[in-house]
Write a protein that binds this DNA or RNA. Structure first.
Lengths: 337, 337
DNA sequence: CTGAAAGCGCTAACAC
DNA sequence: GTGTTAGCGCTTTCAG
C-alpha cells in the first residue's frame, strides 16, 4: 500500500560515497569536514562522488558521534510574536551563519514549565538554550543552570557559570524622562502595570520612584490590573473613562493603544491634556494616530547578539563579559508635548 | 581551564541503567518504549533505576537507530510574525501532544531559498516540513515534492503524493461582499495589491472580477504598489492623498491602517465617504479607531490542523482528503456602513 | 520474558 | 595521506 510516508528511498550514506570514489569512509569524512590534509586529487574524486550521488551528511549520526548537535533551543512566552519577531530574525540570521538550527518552544506558565522544556532539551541534546522572558527571577535562573547547559537569557541582567544575558536597561531613560517632567512641574504621573513583563515594569517603577525621591517627592502612581481582568485592555478602557492624569506610561503597545482609544472616547485630548508614553516600541506605536512616543530598541540586534554569544559559549571561547546591555533611544512622537 | 562549555558531565546512558537494574540494555529499551511485554517486577526495577540515575533517553541515538527524529521543520517568511503568531501556537500545541519538535526556518526570497532549506532539512533528517507561505505556485510546490519529504502547505489549495494543504478560501466571502456592494450601486471599488501575499490578492481580485462580470460590468480597480516603494505604506499615504474611492479593500492590516491614516489626514471621512475592508484580520484591526472591518480567520486552528495532518502523514495513515479549507467570517466593524 | 549481537551513519584515534 | 577500527546510545531481530 502506498502511503504518504517517506518511501524509504534510501538516503545515500558516507559508505556509498566511499565506494563510489574508491576510498575509505575515513577519507570521505575528512573531505566533508575538510579536516586533515587530503591529497588534492583524491579530494576531488570524493567530491565528484558526493555530487554524483547527491550525498548529504546525516546530521543525526554526526550528532551522535560528536556528542553535539549544532542545534540550540529557543524558548519564548507564547503569544509574544508581535514583539519578538525581529528578535527571532536576528537570532535566525546569525544561527544560519554558524550553521546552528533553532528549535522552538513556548512556555506559558513560567519556570515550572521550564523544567519540562529543559528535559526535552536534554533528551534532544541541544547544545544550548536561549531564553526570552521578562519574568524570571535570579533564583529561578540559578536553578535552571543546575542542568549544566549553556544558556543565554534575553531578559534582565544576570549571569553565572552557565548563563549569559542580554538585556535592555530601561532605568536610565525612564528616570531621565520622568525627571524632566518633574522639572517642568508635571507630577501627576502613572505607570500601567503589565503582568506579562514584570521586570521591565519593575525597572520603570524604580526609575520613577528614584526620580521622585530626588525631588523630595514620592511616587505612588502604579496602576495594577486587577486579576479579574484577563485582558488589560478591558480594564484600561474602563479605568480611563473616569480617571485623568498628566502623564501615562505603559510598557506594551496594546496598553498604550487602549489608553489612546479610551481617552479619545472620553474627550480627553492627547497630548494637550494627557501625555502618553509607551516604553516598548513596536510597528504599531507609529502606525496609530496620534503616533505614540516610545523608546526604540534594537530588537534584531538583541537576537543576533544573543546567538553570537551562544556560539562563543559553545566554542569554549573565554567570555570576559557575560552581561550585555543594549541601548534604547527615546523617540518622542505625537502623544507627548 | 574552566569554560562555560558543558563540562562533559557524562549523561547517563541506557547502559548505566541496565547495569544498575541488573538487566540487559534490550530490556531497558523495552521498558522505555513500553514495547513488548516485560515482566512487571523487572519493569519496576528498571523504572527505579531510571529515576535513581535521572536517565533521559538520547533522542539523537534513537533518531539514528530508528531513522526518524520526531522533529519537523517549519518554514515561514521572515517578518511575518505578527500574523503567524497564533498559527505557531496552534502548531506547537499539537506538536507537543505528539512529542514532535519544531525547528524554525525563515525564508525571504521564495523558492530558491527553499532548496537550501530543504537541504538542511534532509541533513537533519527532519521527518516532515510545514510550509507557511502565500507565494508558491503549483509548479514550485511540485518541484519541492521531488525531495520526497512529507509536507503540509499552509497557503493555497494544493496536494500531491507528498503534500497536503491547509488554506483559507477568500474567494466566496470577498465575492459575496463585493456583489452586495454592487447591488447597492457602489461600483467604485479598489483593491490594494500586496506583493507579499500574491495568492490571497489573486483570489480577492478574481472574486471581485467575477462579481462585476455577473452584473455585466468589468473590474479594473487593482492598485499596484510601484516597485520604487519598498514600503507599501509610503505609497498608500501618497496615493490616497489625491484619490478617493467608495470602497477600498486591502489584504494586510498595515495597508488598511495606512489608508485609515491618509484618509483622516486628507479629511476623507470613513466610513461616510469611503468604506474600508481589511481582508486579513489581526489584533490591530480592532485596536485602531475606527475599528477596521475584516474577515476573521481561525489562525490557531490552521496551525493545529496543519500539525495534525503532518502527524497523520508521518504515521502512514491513509489520508483521504489532502486539501483542507478553513472558513472565514466577515466581521463588519466601523469602517463600513 | 530476556539477553546477545548486529547495525543506524559518522568521527577520531591509531596504524600503515 | 589513507585505511582500519572502535565507539557514540539506542533499537531490534534472533536465540534461548
Amino acid at each position: 500500500m502506498r502511503t504518504l510516508v517517506n518511501d524509504e528511498k534510501k538516503r545515500v550514506t558516507i559508505y556509498n560515497v566511499a565506494k563510489e570514489a574508491g576510498v575509505s569512509l575515513a577519507t570521505v569524512s575528512r573531505v566533508i569536514n575538510d579536516s586533515d590534509v587530503v591529497r588534492e586529487d583524491t579530494k576531488k574524486k570524493v567530491q565528484e562522488a558526493i555530487i554524483k550521488l547527491g550525498y548529504k551528511p546525516n546530521a543525526v549520526a554526526q550528532g551522535l558521534a560528536l556528542k553535539k548537535t549544532t542545534s540550540i533551543s529557543l524558548v519564548i512566552p507564547d503569544s509574544s510574536f508581535t514583539y519578538i519577531g525581529k528578535v527571532i530574525n536576528g537570532l535566525l540570521d546569525v544561527a544560519k551563519i554558524y550553521k546552528y538550527n533553532i528549535t522552538l518552544h513556548t512556555s506559558t506558565s513560567g519556570v515550572n514549565e521550564m523544567h519540562e522544556i529543559i528535559d526535552n532539551v536534554i533528551k534532544n541534546r541541544a547544545d544550548g538554550l536561549i531564553l526570552y522572558n521578562d519574568a524570571f527571577s535570579p533564583q529561578e535562573l540559578q536553578t535552571l543552570s543546575d542542568y549544566h547547559i549553556p544558556m543565554v537569557y534575553l531578559g534582565t541582567r544576570f549571569s553565572n557559570d552557565m548563563i549569559c544575558s542580554v538585556f535592555i536597561n530601561y532605568y536610565e531613560p525612564v528616570h531621565d524622562m520622568v525627571a524632566d517632567y518633574l522639572n517642568r512641574g508635571i507630577e501627576d504621573i502613572v505607570i500601567i502595570d503589565d503582568r506579562k513583563n514584570p521586570s521591565s515594569v519593575e525597572q520603570m517603577v524604580k526609575a520613577t520612584e528614584d526620580a521622585f525621591k530626588e525631588q523630595g517627592k514620592t511616587f505612588d502612581g502604579l496602576i495594577r490590573i486587577p486579576d479579574s481582568y484577563h485582558s488589560s485592555y478591558d480594564f484600561l478602557t474602563r479605568y480611563f473613562s473616569s480617571h485623568k492624569h498628566q502623564l501615562i506610561i505603559t510598557y506594551r503597545d496594546s496598553q498604550a493603544i487602549a489608553v489612546l482609544n479610551t481617552c479619545s472616547e472620553n474627550g480627553i485630548k492627547i497630548p494637550e491634556e494627557t501625555e502618553l508614553v509607551c516604553v516598548k516600541d513596536s510597528r504599531y506605536t507609529e502606525m496609530v494616530r496620534p503616533q505614540i512616543s516610545s523608546f526604540v530598541t534594537p530588537s534584531y540586534d538583541a537576537g543576533a547578539l544573543a546567538m553570537r554569544i551562544m556560539t562563543k559559549m559553545l566554542n569554549g571561547d573565554k567570555i570576559t563579559d557575560k552581561e550585555f546591555e543594549l541601548n534604547t533611544l527615546y523617540k518622542p512622537r505625537s502623544t507627548t508635548k
